[in-house]
Nucleic acid binder design. Structure first.
Lengths: 339, 339
DNA sequence: ATACAAAATGAAATCGTTTCCGTATTTATT
DNA sequence: AATAAATACGGAAACGATTTCATTTTGTAT
């Protein structure tokens, strides 16, 4: 397409090596020729071929981001944060969405084994005991960063929120509002966030002397309509909860839909608090939704900063086996406050 | 990292060329050696270096997608659609978000001039008369596909929805519901979608014999809070509209927020219809929002199919200068229906 | 003027593929 | 049986950059 180094060199009656060095501002080249080279390069709009460079340097200036869902403010925001930092350093983002499908995730990870990206930032779609693909990658020394849904067994850097505490506080809030039968809504039980959030929920119940009713702990699927119906069934059953802690935002929306199919009312008959990313939507729901909100953009930025550090400085050590906790904030709205 | 062709060849006592051909299933290689090569390649987990390949073949198996916003169901859904098709053909997606910033868009487009991607799919952030960067790219023969927010002057393939008709119908719906003073909310006037949607709005008013009041045509910024205040000002002014057609989803949300700051009520005092992607949210708003919904995933799929066709078949002609229209659907909900 | 160090540039290898071209062996044709 | 054609493979160039090593040019000290 454009002009290449050799052509530039020919035009300038210089060797390609000199031109390369001039453009990379090497000390070996005189100021005079540097200027000549740079000005012609600009004039001819010379763009170095990224693949030639990647091949030679064995780095791609590309970071892969793997998320479970794209239509999800939480993940979208994290990616925005990553892009904000990495783009400024000339990095490109390959963004893959697994649609919560583990097989798809494995395929994607396998595709990335060949060095197409210099690092991976991932929030796993569902943590099976089988995270062989990620393990292998990490063992080969490939920079790997987790956020939100992590694999704790893989010793690398992770960014999460204070899931346990947030969940504990959220549950406590429901208890303080008079809830006696508090349900816990989740996706896969294998997810790190599920475990931690469940743990906070459980401990809050314990502390309040409330018995945990396992029938109130519901695991949901990827099928929206099915989820709504399950919730509705629960709500019209004898064992109806009077409070819900939803560990996933979209399950709160499903609950609102389910409630519309009953003659119950939030917060009168049912109070609900949820981990939820989009505060605009939370505030516009009827009633407005009490949320636990994670600073997702910040998480993305932190991931980005860490990777830039690792990838752009020479002789960096492996990413430390460390988990950074960025606290969430509870915003109390009408869905948990008695009128 | 992994093993390369030369090493594979040495292990097999074959030449690299033979191994390469065997792996690419060339007719020149006997079945026997093909099997030997393939099995060792599998055993040693051989992964071809993508950059060597890209350099040699002059294609990257990568498609760049440029969107104005990532936290937006509309665009997220289109990207999902693109990924659905292209991933199955071994393509990777570089996703860039401009945050509605034209300068940022230009920078990104310039970065893509060097062949890092084989094609670009873009919804422009704001169409200035100055779309030099995209024009240049297209003139160089670079495959470029537009969706939603297009540059009509650039002769390539575009995917849009029936903006004019949807807007016309939407406005008519408001008129039928008794609205006399109908406002039109938009982002930049330069956007193709704004022009078309405005045109449909205008013609519907004309047809109904309603005079267009330019004070009811509001252009908004990227500042959420400021937008909400502007809307509130409008709503408490003498010139208060009784209907709103919002050409952008988030302006409908801003309107709901603004209404909460007044003592007005939807749909009693104000009816609103909006182009809006997330029907779950639309149905949960209070009152539920009448929407014009575009089949965004389908648009993404169509973009993907077109590009796969263009990029994987040999000797393909340039992308045709053609605009495909994928119709939207109006869903009437409570925000436009008198109680 | 000579010697030697420093500065500036060039030649060629390299990264890992693919592919053009050449060659040896086997198979088919008359 | 001699020749043509098909089959199977190897050697080396090519893609476009960077970098090691070698070489030329310039500057400085004696």
């Amino acid at each position: 397409m454009g002009v290449n180094l050799k052509e530039l060199a020919a035009e300038l009656k210089l060797s390609p090596s000199t031109v390369s060095r001039a453009l990379n501002d090497s000390f070996e080249i005189s100021e005079a020729t540097k200027q000549k080279v740079i000005s012609l390069a600009k004039k001819l709009d010379y763009q170095p071929n990224p693949f030639a460079r990647s091949l030679r340097e064995n780095k791609s200036k590309t970071i892969a981001v793997i998320i479970p869902e794209r239509i999800n403010s939480y993940f979208a925001n994290v990616v925005d944060g990553i892009e904000e930092i990495t783009q400024a350093h000339g990095y490109h983002l390959l963004v893959y969405c697994t649609q919560e499908d583990v097989e798809r995730e494995k395929k994607i990870v396998n595709l990335l084994m060949n060095g197409r990206a210099d690092a991976i930032v991932i929030s796993v779609s569902s943590q099976l005991t089988d995270n062989f693909h990620l393990n292998l990658l990490h063992e080969r020394g490939f920079p790997l960063v987790f956020f939100d849904r992590i694999c704790s067994e893989i010793p690398t850097t992770k960014y999460i929120t204070n899931n346990y505490e947030s969940s504990f506080e959220g549950t406590n809030h429901l208890i303080q509002q008079g809830c006696k039968k508090i349900a816990f809504f989740m996706l896969s039980k294998e997810l790190s966030i599920t475990k931690e959030r469940y743990s906070g929920y459980k401990d809050a119940l314990d502390q309040a002397g409330i018995n945990l009713d396992s029938k109130l702990n519901l695991t949901f699927s990827q099928n929206e309509e099915q989820n709504i119906e399950s919730i509705k069934e629960l709500l019209i059953s004898d064992n109806r909860p009077d409070g819900i802690l939803s560990s996933i935002g979209k399950l709160a929306l499903a609950t609102y839909q389910a409630v519309k199919r009953t003659n119950l009312s939030i917060p009168r008959d049912l109070k609900i608090i949820s981990f939820f990313a989009d505060s605009t939507v939370a505030s516009l729901l009827n009633p407005s939704l009490t949320t636990i909100t994670t600073p997702t953009f910040k998480i993305g930025e932190e991931c980005g900063k860490l990777l830039i550090q690792k990838l752009t400085k020479p002789k960096q050590p492996d990413l430390p086996n460390q988990t950074f906790v960025i606290p969430s904030k509870i915003t109390i709205r009408s869905s948990t406050i008695e009128i």
